[in-house]
Protein backbone atom coordinates (compact mmCIF):
# COMPACT_ATOMS: atom_id res chain seq x y z
CA UNK A 1 0.00 0.00 0.00
CA UNK A 2 1.35 3.34 -1.04
CA UNK A 3 -0.61 5.47 1.38
CA UNK A 4 -0.68 4.14 4.88
CA UNK A 5 -3.46 6.58 5.72
CA UNK A 6 -5.75 4.83 3.24
CA UNK A 7 -5.14 1.45 4.82
CA UNK A 8 -5.81 2.86 8.27
CA UNK A 9 -9.05 4.44 7.04
CA UNK A 10 -10.17 1.13 5.59
CA UNK A 11 -9.24 -0.63 8.81
CA UNK A 12 -11.09 1.95 10.87
CA UNK A 13 -14.17 1.52 8.72
CA UNK A 14 -13.93 -2.25 9.14
CA UNK A 15 -13.72 -1.85 12.92
CA UNK A 16 -16.85 0.29 12.91
CA UNK A 17 -18.60 -2.32 10.77
CA UNK A 18 -17.66 -5.15 13.12
CA UNK A 19 -18.76 -3.19 16.16
CA UNK A 20 -21.99 -1.73 14.87
CA UNK A 21 -23.43 -4.12 12.30
CA UNK A 22 -24.30 -6.77 14.93
CA UNK A 23 -25.95 -4.10 17.05
CA UNK A 24 -28.13 -3.00 14.14
CA UNK A 25 -29.01 -6.57 13.26
CA UNK A 26 -32.58 -7.22 14.36
CA UNK A 27 -33.36 -10.91 14.61
CA UNK A 28 -36.71 -12.29 13.53
CA UNK A 29 -39.00 -12.84 16.49
CA UNK A 30 -40.86 -16.14 16.26
CA UNK A 31 -42.25 -16.38 19.80
CA UNK A 32 -41.81 -20.14 19.91
CA UNK A 33 -42.30 -22.30 22.97
CA UNK A 34 -39.02 -23.87 24.00
CA UNK A 35 -38.69 -26.28 26.86
CA UNK A 36 -35.61 -27.86 28.37
CA UNK A 37 -35.17 -30.61 30.89
CA UNK A 38 -31.97 -29.70 32.72
CA UNK A 39 -30.41 -32.15 35.13
CA UNK A 40 -28.28 -30.66 37.88
CA UNK A 41 -25.77 -32.85 39.64
CA UNK A 42 -22.06 -33.20 40.32
CA UNK A 43 -21.50 -29.46 39.89
CA UNK A 44 -22.77 -29.45 36.30
CA UNK A 45 -25.91 -28.87 34.30
CA UNK A 46 -26.87 -31.35 31.61
CA UNK A 47 -27.40 -29.99 29.05
CA UNK A 48 -25.15 -27.11 30.02
CA UNK A 49 -25.81 -24.93 27.00
CA UNK A 50 -29.35 -23.87 26.13
CA UNK A 51 -29.90 -22.10 22.81
CA UNK A 52 -33.09 -20.22 22.07
CA UNK A 53 -34.20 -17.45 19.77
CA UNK A 54 -35.08 -13.97 20.96
CA UNK A 55 -38.73 -13.74 21.92
CA UNK A 56 -39.06 -17.46 22.63
CA UNK A 57 -40.99 -18.51 25.67
CA UNK A 58 -38.50 -20.63 27.55
CA UNK A 59 -39.39 -23.25 30.13
CA UNK A 60 -36.59 -24.87 32.07
CA UNK A 61 -37.43 -27.90 34.15
CA UNK A 62 -34.68 -28.27 36.72
CA UNK A 63 -34.07 -31.77 38.01
CA UNK A 64 -31.57 -32.18 40.81
CA UNK A 65 -29.88 -35.54 40.89
CA UNK A 66 -27.85 -35.35 44.10
CA UNK A 67 -28.43 -32.43 46.44
CA UNK A 68 -30.47 -29.24 46.37
CA UNK A 69 -29.37 -27.10 43.43
CA UNK A 70 -30.51 -23.81 42.05
CA UNK A 71 -30.34 -22.17 38.68
CA UNK A 72 -29.81 -18.45 38.37
CA UNK A 73 -29.91 -16.78 34.97
CA UNK A 74 -27.52 -13.86 34.57
CA UNK A 75 -29.04 -10.80 32.99
CA UNK A 76 -32.59 -11.98 33.58
CA UNK A 77 -32.06 -12.08 37.36
CA UNK A 78 -34.31 -15.13 37.65
CA UNK A 79 -33.75 -18.19 39.73
CA UNK A 80 -35.31 -21.49 40.64
CA UNK A 81 -34.42 -24.14 43.21
CA UNK A 82 -35.02 -27.86 43.02
CA UNK A 83 -34.64 -30.72 45.49
CA UNK A 84 -34.04 -34.21 44.17
CA UNK A 85 -37.47 -35.70 43.56
CA UNK A 86 -39.05 -32.29 43.28
CA UNK A 87 -38.43 -30.87 39.83
CA UNK A 88 -39.04 -27.15 39.54
CA UNK A 89 -39.73 -25.10 36.47
CA UNK A 90 -38.78 -21.62 35.42
CA UNK A 91 -40.65 -19.95 32.60
CA UNK A 92 -39.73 -16.66 31.01
CA UNK A 93 -39.68 -14.85 27.71
CA UNK A 94 -36.18 -14.57 26.27
CA UNK A 95 -36.43 -10.85 25.55
CA UNK A 96 -32.73 -10.05 25.88
CA UNK A 97 -30.24 -11.30 23.33
CA UNK A 98 -26.79 -12.50 24.17
CA UNK A 99 -25.08 -15.17 26.18
CA UNK A 100 -26.01 -15.46 29.83
CA UNK A 101 -24.39 -17.62 32.43
CA UNK A 102 -26.48 -20.07 34.38
CA UNK A 103 -25.17 -20.29 37.92
CA UNK A 104 -26.09 -22.56 40.75
CA UNK A 105 -27.76 -20.40 43.39
CA UNK A 106 -27.77 -22.84 46.31
CA UNK A 107 -24.46 -23.78 47.92
CA UNK A 108 -24.13 -27.37 46.78
CA UNK A 109 -20.65 -28.33 47.91
CA UNK A 110 -17.05 -27.33 47.33
CA UNK A 111 -17.26 -26.62 43.61
CA UNK A 112 -20.54 -24.74 43.88
CA UNK A 113 -19.15 -21.40 42.62
CA UNK A 114 -18.02 -23.14 39.46
CA UNK A 115 -21.32 -24.86 38.68
CA UNK A 116 -22.08 -23.00 35.48
CA UNK A 117 -24.06 -23.31 32.29
CA UNK A 118 -25.06 -20.99 29.48
CA UNK A 119 -28.20 -19.59 27.99
CA UNK A 120 -27.67 -18.30 24.50
CA UNK A 121 -30.44 -16.11 23.17
CA UNK A 122 -30.07 -15.54 19.44
CA UNK A 123 -26.64 -15.38 17.90
CA UNK A 124 -23.65 -14.81 20.11
CA UNK A 125 -22.76 -11.50 18.52
CA UNK A 126 -20.09 -10.69 21.07
CA UNK A 127 -17.89 -13.62 20.19
CA UNK A 128 -18.13 -12.82 16.47
CA UNK A 129 -17.36 -9.19 17.21
CA UNK A 130 -14.45 -10.36 19.31
CA UNK A 131 -13.12 -12.65 16.59
CA UNK A 132 -13.62 -9.97 13.97
CA UNK A 133 -11.84 -7.38 16.06
CA UNK A 134 -8.98 -9.76 16.79
CA UNK A 135 -8.39 -10.31 13.08
CA UNK A 136 -8.63 -6.59 12.40
CA UNK A 137 -6.18 -6.07 15.23
CA UNK A 138 -3.89 -8.56 13.51
CA UNK A 139 -4.04 -6.56 10.30
CA UNK A 140 -3.55 -3.37 12.27
CA UNK A 141 -0.46 -4.60 14.06
CA UNK A 142 1.02 -5.75 10.77
CA UNK A 143 0.18 -2.45 9.11
CA UNK A 144 2.34 -0.52 11.51
CA UNK A 145 5.55 -0.16 9.58
CA UNK A 146 7.67 0.33 12.60
CA UNK A 147 6.26 -1.03 15.85
CA UNK A 148 5.85 1.99 18.04
CA UNK A 149 9.11 3.88 18.23
CA UNK A 150 11.41 2.66 20.95
CA UNK A 151 12.21 5.66 23.13
CA UNK A 152 15.89 6.42 23.29
CA UNK A 153 17.21 4.86 26.44
CA UNK A 154 18.80 7.32 28.79
CA UNK A 155 21.64 5.26 30.11
CA UNK A 156 23.32 8.11 31.90
CA UNK A 157 23.00 11.82 32.17
Amino acid sequence: MKHPAVSWLILGAAVLLVVFVPILHKPEILNKERSFRVEAGDFAYTPAVLKVNPGDRVTIELISTDVVHGLYVDGYDLSVTADPGQPATLTFVADQSGVFRLRCSVACGALHPFMLGKLQVGRNMLIWQGIGMTFLALIGTLLIRKPFPVPEKQTSS
Binding site: G41, D42, A44, Y45, T46, L111, F114, G117, K118
Partner: peptide, 12 residues
Protein backbone atom coordinates in the same frame (compact mmCIF):
# COMPACT_ATOMS: atom_id res chain seq x y z
CA UNK B 1 -15.56 -21.79 34.19
CA UNK B 2 -16.47 -24.24 31.45
CA UNK B 3 -19.64 -26.31 31.44
CA UNK B 4 -17.85 -29.65 31.81
CA UNK B 5 -18.65 -31.23 35.17
CA UNK B 6 -16.42 -34.25 34.62
CA UNK B 7 -13.38 -32.01 34.20
CA UNK B 8 -14.17 -30.09 37.37
CA UNK B 9 -14.55 -33.30 39.35
CA UNK B 10 -11.34 -34.71 37.90
CA UNK B 11 -9.42 -31.59 38.93
CA UNK B 12 -11.00 -31.76 42.37
Amino acid sequence: LGPWGTLKLAAY
